[in-house]
Design a protein around this nucleic acid. Structure first.
Length: 572
RNA sequence: CGGGGCGUGGCGCAGUCUGGUAGCGCACUGCAAUGGGGUUGCAGUGGUCGGAGGUUCGAAUCCUCUCGCCCCGACCA
């Protein structure tokens, strides 16, 4: 491809409303254009990348024997009423109405459609197991779309659904899929990690998320130094501390703390170690628990795991924090002055709080804290539970090694659904025993368009994108220096371009009449992995200049045999 | 959904308080010079100032309504 024939429109300035690097670079390089909130066009440049990702996904799915198909984006409401998700899916479900007033949805996912298809198509266990997949545009009406295609409303997704006669078969396909996903992300050139995830919401037993590792990731993932344990932080158990609770060594004192309403202020103003402080979070109590609110106690340097808290039987699910007014009404003091001593609402302490002694917490009186609090002596030991998020260095729940934290971008998710949809929609087959069996299902998603953004988050520098070769829009850029004046340069560039193109390489030949600096900057911005510079200087010595996008220096390569030389470097 | 902010050429912005009929940088077009890291000069193109209504001799600017976009939001008291 020659730049003169391509639609290359780059931008020097960073658009004001792009917050994260991938969004900025995708806009500046001209890969995407926003049509409206959370909805983007992919320009020819962006589309090349998206297709590369899509093709890797498709090839690996095909290789595994899964069957590609295409389902409707617009689906009748009846199907969604059948599974209850017309109501349950929430406000993210885009509902539309046709001319005759019938309700439809624009599919955010396709469990209903595939299950409907399966109950009509599949009659016998002999047809199982079978896995269908599609690569299709989905729409989820995100409350707050942001970060470009990272969290868009309209996005490209690969979704696959498997059908089974029994749990063993489902399990087999599930782990097969796990391997297929690993191959896909590896092939795309991404650093990723598969972690245990919560299967709860969708129902079913096993579930893994695949995360591309990147500083800017929205998810916190956790893994062990001593084993292959890895999970989303939501799920990771904090093991109870091994040491005993030390006995009291200080007296309980009530201290005026008019300017300390946060743990941070308390620590700063009174020189207490943060590990000796306790914060008290007030949440709504579960219905029928006999109380309106429950206080949760976490060490000052820890954070509450809302996921764990919501699962406690005393706590309302979903979790809801009390408002400041509610707190004042129930306790008589505002947030910032709360603590377990003389607290008359039920209280649950994190297991690390239970082994604290001589600690500091609010006094439930405005602007006062107690110092030197000790369990039993000053206040009875409350119920104890695992409430906090794990931190770096905690022991791994499997007893092997310590935990490390990393940030990730969720790009894939696999679930064992079981019979949630097949039962609701009566998707059954005849088994070997001649009886009807509800099929078991698995579902497996990959955010194709999100991978593009995630790849940039993971692979960029201050000049622009550094595409992993397998998903780069072009493999090689040819930059002729002063081609306007130099026949030799032009000829050498044309020749190399033709040879590479004929060898099946995707080349972007910059034949614009622009200054070298413009070429360098554009090619680096759009992230082409390999660059060949052709100039009079080099030609005099029979040399071309080669540079890998992330390499610090140029490398001379002989003009003689340049084609082979370059071909050898590709794919590396 | 609540809170805040912003809509002025493709992009980034000024002008709005204090009404007088639209401006800067980048990009784009033409010419010339330059020719190994966003070069320079000259000359240009492009905007019903988000939309509707109102006030006024006169509205980007004031008033009312409306639409859109962005950010923050029970994140630890």
């Amino acid at each position: 491809m020659k730049t003169s024939k391509f639609h290359l429109v780059t931008n020097r300035e960073t658009p004001a409303d792009a917050e994260i690097v991938s969004h900025q670079l995708m806009l500046r390089s001209g890969m995407i254009r926003k049509l409206t909130a959370g909805i983007y066009s992919w320009t020819p440049l962006g589309w090349r990348v998206l297709k590369k990702v899509e093709n890797i996904v498709r090839e690996e799915m095909d290789r595994a024997g899964y069957l590609e198909m295409l389902m409707p984006a617009v689906q009748p409401a009846e199907l969604w009423r059948e599974t209850g998700r017309w109501e349950d899916f929430g406000s993210q479900l885009l509902k539309i109405r046709d001319r005759a007033g019938r309700d439809f949805v624009f599919g955010p996912t396709h469990e209903e459609v595939i299950t409907d298809l399966a109950r009509n198509e599949l009659r016998s266990y002999k047809q199982l197991p079978v896995t269908f997949y599609q690569i299709q545009t989905k729409f989820r009406d995100e409350i707050r779309p942001r970060f470009g295609v990272m969290r868009a409303r309209e996005f490209l997704m690969k979704d696959a659904y498997s059908f089974h006669i029994d749990a063993a078969s489902l399990d087999k396909t599930y782990w097969e899929m796990y391997e297929v996903y690993s191959r896909i992300f590896t092939r795309a050139g991404l650093k990723f990690r598969a972690v245990h995830a919560d299967p709860g919401a969708i129902g079913g037993s096993a579930s893994h998320e695949f995360h591309v590792l990147a500083e800017s990731g929205e998810d916190q993932i956790v893994f062990s130094t001593g084993s292959d344990f890895a999970a989303n932080i939501e799920l990771v158990e904090a093991l109870p501390p091994e040491q005993e609770r030390p006995g009291p060594s200080t007296d309980l004192t009530l201290v005026a703390t008019p300017d300390a309403h946060t743990i941070e202020e308390l620590v700063k103003q009174f020189d207490v170690p943060v590990e000796k402080t306790v914060k008290t979070l007030v949440v709504e109590a579960a219905e029928g628990s006999g109380a309106s609110f429950v206080a949760l106690l976490v060490r000052g340097d820890h954070t509450l795991n809302e996921f764990k808290a919501a699962k406690l039987e005393q706590v309302a699910n979903p979790l809801r924090f009390a408002t400041e007014e509610e707190i004042r009404e129930a306790i008589g003091a505002g947030p910032g002055s709360l603590g377990p001593v003389k607290l008359d609402i039920p209280c649950i302490a994190d297991s690390s709080v239970a082994v604290m002694s001589d600690f500091t917490a609010g006094a439930n009186t405005e602007d006062k804290h107690y110092f030197g609090i000790n369990w039993v002596r000053d206040v009875p030991m409350p119920a104890v539970a695992d409430l906090r998020n794990v931190v770096e260095g905690d022991p791994s729940p499997d007893g092997e090694g310590e935990l490390r934290l990393a940030r990730g971008i969720e790009v894939g998710h696999i679930f064992q659904l079981g019979t949630k949809y097949s039962e609701a929609m009566n998707a059954v087959v005849l088994g070997q025993d001649g009886k009807s069996h509800v099929m078991l299902m698995g579902c497996y998603g990959i955010g194709v368009s999100r991978i593009v953004a995630a790849a940039i988050e993971q692979n960029h520098d201050d000049r622009g994108i550094c595409w992993p070769e397998p998903i780069a829009p072009f493999q090689v850029a040819i930059l002729p220096m002063n081609a306007k004046k130099s026949h030799r340069v032009r000829e050498a560039a044309e020749k190399l371009y033709t040879e590479l193109t004929e060898a099946g390489v995707e080349v972007l030949y910059d034949d614009r009449n622009v200054r070298p600096g413009v070429m360098f900057n554009d090619m680096e911005l759009i992230g082409i992995p390999h660059r060949i510079v052709i100039g009079e200087r080099g030609l005099d010595k029979g040399l071309l200049e080669y540079r890998q996008r992330t390499a610090p220096e140029n490398e001379d390569i002989p003009l003689q045999g340049a084609l082979e030389n370059i071909l050898d470097r590709l794919g590396g």
